[in-house]
């Protein structure tokens, strides 16, 4: 609710206050948009304009060369993995990002929603309370403590030990799965989200029990009640949680970086952009010797313009998701107000 009362809004003093607030806020908006504009502008600059000073926000000779270069450069295998960003074509990386984000959304949102519904409406009070803390407790714990154990666990699931133990009295090993270098190594740790659980539960708590009772009396099964009555009502929360799940998967760097390090064919864009950026900034002309393929790449114009083009490519799906979920997000903000 606004602090300046509605009635006094036309007085000169109130107008001055409101006017300066508006200016301050619009400056914030513009500052926020500026790096975006700078990124887009640089991505359309020819390489020589990157070196131009003073700098121009509008490219003098706009070109899509950077995008073409990104899309068409594929270096042959066998060169240094550290700078060999373009072993695979760009669309491979884009596809990887999309698959990772889609899998995360499709697994995380239903699992989290069902658990939140059960805790909110189905469980006995005692188990509901216990499960609630079981589910959200990890929010209060620094998760990075588990980097190493999580990696060990995913290396030969479900055995966190260094090697898979033998089945007693035999020479056979217990069955295990290795998720290193697979999408699952990144997706499974995100299969449940404590934060989205809170959002879902907060919403389900506001729904009257009568709705469920009515469905039960009509003979609907619990699953039908959830699917036909609860989920349609929860559409705004589903939109918000889907958006959060999508963006966090899309932005995830450490997960794919550790789990997919050895498998370049599965790298998402977040890793590739780091690699390209590393290659651009760590190589100095004074270092002299450089991989011929990388050298060729650099001289053909891969510079900050290409990096910014890659940044644009990485940001477009985020932007599309934002456009799609915009209305629901705005509505969702009002219901996602935090409740105990």
């Amino acid at each position: 609710m606004p602090i300046v009362p509605q009635v006094g809004r036309r007085s000169p003093r109130a107008r001055l206050t409101l006017g300066s607030i508006a200016v301050f806020l619009w400056i914030g908006v513009l500052l926020h948009l500026f790096p975006v504009a700078w990124m887009i502008s640089a991505s359309f600059k020819p390489t020589r304009e990157i070196f131009d000073q003073p700098f121009n926000l509008i490219p003098k000779e706009p070109t899509t060369a950077s995008y073409g270069l990104l899309a068409n450069t594929v270096t042959p295998p066998g060169t240094d993995l550290n700078i060999d960003v373009f072993r695979y074509p760009l669309y491979t990386y884009l596809l990887n990002s999309l698959v990772l984000a889609a899998l995360t959304v499709l697994i995380q949102v239903p699992i989290t929603a069902m658990a939140a519904y059960a805790v909110s409406k189905l469980h006995a009070p005692r188990s509901a309370k216990l499960l609630f803390f079981f589910f959200i407790g990890t929010l209060m714990i620094p998760g990075q403590i588990a980097i190493v154990p999580r990696f060990l666990l995913l290396s030969h699931f479900p055995w966190p030990t260094r090697a898979v133990p033998d089945i007693p009295f035999t020479d056979l090993m217990f069955p295990s799965l290795s998720f290193v270098g697979t999408y699952w190594g990144v997706v499974l740790p995100a299969a449940f989200s404590a934060f989205n659980f809170l959002l879902f539960k907060g919403f389900f708590d506001t729904l009257p029990v009568d709705l469920i009772e009515a469905a039960r009396i009509d003979g609907a099964s619990e699953l039908t009640t959830l699917r036909k009555i609860m989920l349609p009502l929860a559409r705004p929360v589903i939109a918000v949680t889907t958006y959060f799940a999508f963006t966090s998967a899309w932005n995830d760097f450490l997960g794919p970086w550790i789990m997919l390090m050895t498998n370049q064919a599965k790298w998402p864009l977040s890793v590739v952009i780091y690699k390209l950026q590393f290659f651009l900034t760590s190589w100095q002309p004074s270092q002299g010797s450089m991989d011929p393929a990388a050298q060729a790449l650099l001289s053909s114009g891969v510079g900050y313009n290409a990096l910014m083009a890659l940044a644009v490519v990485e940001s477009i799906p985020m932007f599309l998701a934002f456009v799609i979920f915009r209305e629901q997000l705005m509505k969702g903000i009002q219901i996602a107000g935090l409740k105990g």
């Binding site: 658990a115 059960a118 006995a124 990890t138 403590i145 588990a146 154990p149 999580r150 966190p160």
Partner: peptide, 29 residues
């Protein structure tokens, strides 16, 4: 109650394996 546990089971498994267990196992490693 059966439905409650069935709905919660996947989340319980995920939260156990990827939420709590690695934290506890850190104290072993």
């Amino acid at each position: 109650r059966a439905a409650a546990w069935a709905f919660s089971a996947p989340a319980i498994l995920c939260q156990f394996f990827f939420g709590w267990f690695p934290v506890l196992f850190a104290f072993y490693v």
